[in-house]
């Protein structure tokens, strides 16, 4: 970010906070995702020092993810529902300040990186306690129900989240360069066993190891809300438990972190009832299919020339292994 943008940012933050003494004392790019840019901001105001994070967009973004204004509204709703999230501070929808809309939230310490998290026996208060806490967080998210005026941008809830998922995935496959028979095989298996419709709730839709900040005491923050939407609560549990998000630690079925029973137990503590295991398994197969089509879309950003990137290029090569898992899961369902 150049000097002119930093100066405009400081002026804007002074106006937004009503604090003319506010100064940005340090600013550094954080290791961000493929979609967003995150910047750490050290801020001096009212004589004290504060640690913030500024979140804004990369040049090219996935069509399915929310913008910063929507993510800010989701953070506020989650915070009000008791979900552990970074405190949302201010939102700027004026792209002229730093080149794209952004919001600022309080910086949270901890570790999120999947490969480190699954190796630790102590993070999050230990494996059992950690996934129990994750279950409680999910149940709090799922207590947010439509209709919500502040979340109107999420659109109408689907009447049947399962068939909506299958239709969306097929549309995603139809826009790819090549047909994907193994993914079709998985979608067809889900279609043969569609679940009964269920009352829609707010789903985080990317609640997995790697997107949850942990410290030694427990869950420090649930991050990355840009895919949230109305749906079947079991979709979040299936995404977290899917083998492709266990970062190699497959024996710990809840995200490579801890046992599935503890996750379900924590969920039941808040929701008043445990999740429906059969529905979670349906959504675990769905998770592999969804991650595969996201990976295809990310690879396409490289292939199309829109955003040449080694990371995006390699993401395309994750798809065969996901397809391999899809075939195995379909086979397992047939013999269940």
């Amino acid at each position: 970010m150049d000097e002119a943008r930093r100066a405009r940012l400081t002026r804007w933050l002074r106006d937004a906070t009503g604090d003319p003494s506010l100064a940005v004392t340090a600013m550094a790019r954080l290791s961000g995702g493929a979609i967003q840019q995150n910047w750490s901001l050290d801020v001096a105001r009212d004589g004290g020092a504060e640690a913030w994070v500024l979140r804004t967009d990369n040049a090219a973004t996935l069509a399915v993810s929310h913008g910063r204004a929507e993510e800010f509204a989701l953070l506020r709703a989650a915070s009000a529902a008791g979900v552990t999230v970074p405190e949302p501070l201010v939102l700027c929808t004026d792209a002229r300040v730093i080149g794209a809309p952004f919001f600022v939230m309080r910086r949270v310490g901890g570790i999120a990186a999947g490969h480190r998290v699954v190796k630790s026996d102590t993070l999050g208060g230990g494996r059992d306690a950690c996934v129990r806490a994750l279950g409680r967080e999910l149940a709090r998210i799922h207590a947010i129900r439509p209709p919500r005026a502040d979340l109107a941008f999420l659109g109408d809830p689907p009447e049947d989240a399962c068939s909506a998922f299958i239709a969306r995935q097929r549309a995603a496959l139809d826009r790819q360069r090549l047909p994907r028979p193994a993914l079709e095989w998985g979608l067809r298996a889900l279609e043969r066993e569609t679940l009964d419709p269920i009352a829609p709730v707010l789903c985080h839709n990317d609640f997995r190891t790697g997107n949850i900040m942990l410290d030694e005491a427990g869950v420090a923050a649930v991050l990355d809300w840009e895919f949230a939407g109305w749906g079947d609560p079991h979709a979040d549990l299936g995404w977290l438990c899917a083998r492709c998000w266990r970062f190699g630690n497959v024996a710990q079925e809840a995200g490579g972190v801890g046992p599935r029973a503890a996750l379900y137990g924590g969920y039941a503590e808040v929701a008043g009832h445990p999740p429906d295991h059969a529905r979670v398994l349906w959504w675990e197969l769905a998770a592999h299919l969804r991650w595969a089509t996201i990976a295809l879309d990310q690879a396409e950003r490289h292939l199309s020339g829109a955003e040449p990137s080694l990371e995006l290029a390699l993401t395309g090569h994750l798809v065969p292994e996901l397809e391999w898992q899809v075939l195995a899961l379909v086979e397992a369902r047939a013999h269940a």
């Binding site: 028979p181 193994a182 090569h317 994750l318 292994e321 397809e323 391999w324 898992q325």
Partner: peptide, 21 residues
């Protein structure tokens, strides 16, 4: 059809992610 899917997927995994095999 299932056997064919297994064969083509195995051939692709062998290039992209042989550890999965």
């Amino acid at each position: 059809a299932a056997a064919l899917l297994g064969d083509i997927t195995r051939a692709r995994v062998a290039v992209s992610a042989p550890r999965a095999l």
